[in-house]
């Protein structure tokens, strides 16, 4: 199977002995087969003598995976967790949202038992978080326990866009009242 050939699902494109199975492929009986329609591409992998073989297709279905950085809108807050609607995964907007949850212990890295959800997030905030697990049957579990994670966009009680002051405070530009949030550090 030469490179840059267009293949359909099920076509054999290589063998496990000579290549590593990558995106768009699967293995069966020691053979690597395509699982989507697209072009065959082989790439070098550092520290491995085998090349990785992938099938490049026109469309990648984006689903939150463990470790993905996501943007989510806070929908509801309780004392234990904040429920969010995951709207973007790795910079790509999703057509239909997934439900996510940020639990009290995943809001920040230090003093996790003293976290007050209402002082970290409010409904309507846009939060950058990382997916830490597939969670329970209803929502993914997310975490904002890193400096660059947290609220990236929030609205004050007066309806203005909040301006970050420190990692835990944001200020309303109109009333100059400060509100507590777990703020994402933007570089």
């Amino acid at each position: 199977m030469s490179e840059s050939d267009v293949v359909t699902p099920g076509t054999r494109i290589g063998s496990v002995d000579t290549h590593i199975s990558g995106r768009g492929t699967y293995t069966r009986d020691g053979r690597i087969c395509a699982s989507v329609v697209g072009r065959v591409v082989t790439k070098d992998v550092p520290n491995q003598d085998k090349k990785i073989i992938e099938v490049e297709s026109k469309q990648e279905t984006t689903v939150p995976q463990i470790g993905s950085i996501v943007l989510a809108t806070v929908v509801k807050t309780t004392t234990q967790f904040a429920k969010v609607d995951i709207t973007c995964v790795e910079g790509k907007a999703l057509e239909t949202t997934f439900m996510g949850m940020i639990r009290q212990q995943d809001v920040r890295a230090t003093e996790i038992d003293k976290v007050v959800i209402y002082e970290s997030f409010r409904p309507g905030d846009v939060v950058r978080a990382v997916v830490i697990s597939l969670g329970d049957s209803k929502s993914y579990y997310l975490s904002t326990a890193r400096n660059e994670l947290g609220v990236v966009f929030g609205t004050s009680m007066a309806g203005q866009t909040l301006v970050p002051v420190s990692w835990k405070e944001m200020e309303c530009p109109k009333t100059h009242l400060r509100e507590l949030r777990k703020v994402a550090k933007t570089i």
Binding site: G24, Y26, V36, Q59
Partner: peptide, 11 residues
């Protein structure tokens, strides 16, 4: 399914 890019074992 092919148009959606969902991986399958065969067509």
């Amino acid at each position: 399914l092919i148009d959606a890019g969902i991986p399958m074992r065969d067509f």
